[in-house]
Simulated scan of single mutants.
Amino acid sequence: MDLKRLTDRVFYTMFSKESDRPVLGYINGQTRSLMVDAGNSKYHVALFNKAVRKEGLRIPEIVAITHWHWDHTFGMHAAEGVTIAHEKTNAKLAELAEWEWTDIEMKKRLAAGIEIEFADTCIRNEYPSLSEIRVVASDISFDGTMEIDLGGITAQLHHVTSPHSDDSVCILVPQERVLFVGDAVGVDYYKDCYLDKDKLRSLLTAIEGFDFDTCVVGHAEPVSKQKIVAVMNSLLER
């Protein structure tokens, strides 16, 4: 895994399809640094930290979460920094923390429609030993918006309406004109890939209102503001 430079102070790592590892972000402030999303396991976090050290950067003191899905949160327990998530994210993580992560129980949840096949398959790819799964809530929670001063640069956390997940958070770095959106521009996999166009319109309005040039998405290469807006309009026309 390599840390790719997006701007002077913003970096990202590539996604991986085999076990659905998402893009992770790194925002480098003068006094503190921030990691966007916590990855899907302690192994994912370890690779991220190795890439950070390779670039001569410090391990992030803060980790901000974009939404509750396992691939963005199951590395939280292994992150060295203070974790921050929306209240709705923590509510869902508290629920998952009560689950038993065994072959039998995972099959039961799959059969009951509580879990989806894609997530089940990817979790098993990431965790040959299911006993290593550990789900935790964040150290700090917020509602609405939150601004974090990293020293000469800020990270603005905005809870947004999204068709993908009700707890979706966008992270704007105004000084670098970069917006992290996680998987906010996407269907709801837990509702048979349903696309709520009203929620998508609300998200489009929010994204158009942010002042940025580059959008970092959860499972693809970064795109321009014009491109992400075009993608959303295309989805609305579908």
Rank of each mutant, 00 (worst) to 15 (best):
N233H: 13
R124G: 02
A38C: 09
V160A: 08
F74R: 12
A155P: 04
L57F: 02
M1A: 09
E95D: 08
V223F: 01
P174N: 07
D198L: 13
L110F: 12
F180G: 01
K225E: 02
L236R: 06
R53L: 14
V187F: 13
K108T: 09
D198Y: 12
E95M: 10
A97R: 14
N49L: 03
E132P: 00
L24E: 02
H44I: 04
A38N: 08
A206F: 07
T154S: 14
L150Q: 07
L6R: 12
F142V: 03
S234H: 04
T13L: 07
E221S: 13
H219L: 11
A220W: 04
W68V: 11
I104V: 14
D211L: 13
I133M: 10
M1N: 05
E115G: 11
A46P: 00
T31K: 14
L6V: 11
L236P: 05
L57V: 11
C193L: 08
M106P: 07
H44Q: 07
R5V: 00
D71Y: 14
I171H: 09
D2T: 09
L47S: 10
T13D: 11
S165F: 08
V36Q: 05
T89M: 03
F48T: 05
S131P: 02
A111M: 12
Y194H: 15
D143T: 14
T31C: 01
Y194F: 15
E221G: 02
D139I: 12
L172M: 03
E80H: 10
E126Y: 01
Y26G: 00
H67T: 04
R177V: 05
Y190M: 06
S234V: 00
D143G: 14
I84Q: 00
V185Q: 08
G81K: 02
V23T: 15
S165P: 00
L6F: 10
E55G: 06
K191L: 13
E147R: 14
T73G: 03
I148S: 01
V223G: 01
W70A: 06
A220H: 10
D139T: 13
D8R: 15
D8W: 04
L93T: 02
G151W: 12
F15L: 03
A206S: 12
M146W: 08
W101T: 02
V187S: 05
L150A: 05
A94I: 02
K191Y: 07
A97C: 11
I27M: 04
N40P: 00
I27A: 12
E117K: 15
I228L: 07
V216W: 12
H77Q: 08
S162K: 10
K199H: 05
E61V: 06
F180S: 01
D139Y: 11
E221N: 12
I148N: 01
R124M: 03
G113S: 11
K50S: 10
V173I: 15
Y190K: 03
H86W: 11
L93D: 03
D166T: 13
V136R: 06
G152A: 12
V10P: 09
K197Y: 04
G56Y: 11
S234K: 08
V82H: 01
F212V: 07
I228W: 08
A137P: 09
M232E: 03
I140L: 14
M35H: 01
D120M: 04
H69R: 13
T83F: 07
S129D: 15
D139R: 13
I148Q: 03
E208G: 04
P174S: 06
F15N: 15
